[in-house]
């Protein structure tokens, strides 16, 4: 089936944006404020200073059609504290997220199953105490989703996700 232009407009796909911004107080709230003011959605957002301490690097995942994401990029560029914006989805790129999951094992069998699943997903058990397993896992967000699904048969106590971060492959770089 072909889609009409109107339907095409409504397709909301996932976009991952990388930002370099001045490491100033308030810069983060300018970005998050922009999203709430203009009704854009934020799926995840992660930010930390770079090797240059005057700059922060942010990775932001949003959903929207192409026109709305183009508008988001323009509005971000308009913020005075933003130095550069790059839509990573336009480039060949690597994307990772880190997650901690704390799971309660109910019996010996579930202990083994947790360990086995962790191995399959190349996750690490980083703490065990009182049948509480804390697992660290890194990967693309969908891999983390998959791992969480397998853990559902156990008792999930706590989940901490970092939000996605990304970098381009090869010589493309987001630099000042």
């Amino acid at each position: 089936m072909f889609k009409t232009q109107k339907e095409e407009k409504q397709i909301r796909s996932r976009h991952i944006l990388s930002l370099l911004m001045e490491n100033e107080t308030g810069a983060l709230s300018r970005v998050s404020g922009l999203f709430s003011q203009r009704g854009y959605n934020i799926e995840s957002l992660t930010v930390a200073p770079t090797d240059d301490p005057t700059l922060s690097r942010m990775t932001l995942v949003t959903k929207g059609n192409d026109a709305s994401v183009e508008q988001i990029v323009k509005q971000l560029n308009k913020l005075i504290d933003i130095v550069k914006v790059m839509e990573l989805s336009d480039y060949s790129h690597i994307e990772r997220e880190i997650m901690f999951v704390k799971v309660a094992a109910t019996n010996m069998e579930s202990c083994a199953s947790i360990k086995r699943m962790a191995d399959i997903f190349r996750a690490n058990v980083i703490d065990v105490k009182n049948k509480m397993y804390t697992i660290e896992i890194t990967g693309r967000p969908d891999k983390l989703d998959g791992f969480l699904e397998t853990m559902e048969e156990h008792k999930i106590i706590e989940v901490v996700r970092s939000g996605a971060m990304g970098i381009t492959r090869g010589s493309n770089a987001l630099k000042v």
Partner: peptide, 11 residues
């Protein structure tokens, strides 16, 4: 002069 004003409401 404002790129964000272009194609915001009308392409």
């Amino acid at each position: 002069i404002d790129p964000a004003s272009i194609s915001k409401n009308i392409n």
